[in-house]
Amino acid sequence: MPTQITYLHDGSFEGMLTAVAIAVKSNNEVEGIYPSQHYASSLFTDVHNVQTDQSQAMRFFKYLQSLKGIAASLAIDGFLSENDEMATHLYCMVRESLQYGESVLYWHTHDSVNFLHKLSRKVRREAHRFNGLVRFRILEDGLQYAPFEPDYNVIGYCAQHFRKRLANYSWVLHDVRRNQALYWDGSSCQSIYIDEGFSSQVRTSGELPQKHLCQSEIHYQRLWNYFHEAIAIKERRNPLLQRQYMPSRYWKYLPEIS
């Protein structure tokens, strides 16, 4: 009887792709593919630690891109969702597509395909939500700074959006939960380090210390507050509906809610 093998990768995107690629190539029965950090080993599984191989990962990614385009974005979105099960499902989907052809990517009743589509929808939905819910504070030197706490790792998607929209301004998007930040200087986007002390201060207060803000910032936050209040129709008040669209976990960094 062939043994069931568990593949572990280092948690990076390339590592995940390498592990899936190796699993697809081998004829072993795969028990699962997980990031090693989150894996508690049990007695009866055969564990393979996968060495990340950049070129193999890239080759596999190219292959995914050749599958009608959607497979690659399913892999990316799955990875951004930080769900530990996604690599296993990606493996299952690729195996099926080798057997039945590319149309399995739309086999919505298949558990793995369904799982990946669902994850992708969740990630895309949150990225889209934050394109609207991110709030920039303008600092004294003109830099625009936006802290936010997304459930999924969507900072890259948001940066893609704002590099088009605010192309001629410089801004920082700061994922306070993961303490990742992206800085756009008007021509290129780069990852920057924001010191933990500052982050935790923003995380607890939900706002920046006033001394960092530019003079008109408070003025416009107040105007926005007035507007937000005036635009609601009292006779149609419906806080449940409001919360359904804008869950309260997003409220922390919104100046209109205070």
């Binding site: 959006h161 937000h228 129709i233 419906n238």
Partner: peptide, 20 residues
């Protein structure tokens, strides 16, 4: 400054649950 977004973007919701 700015661009259009094909599908539109909601930025906030007022107390009556309508999008802003």
């Amino acid at each position: 400054i700015g661009n259009g977004h094909k599908s539109g973007i909601c930025h906030s919701w007022s107390a009556d649950g309508r999008c802003i």
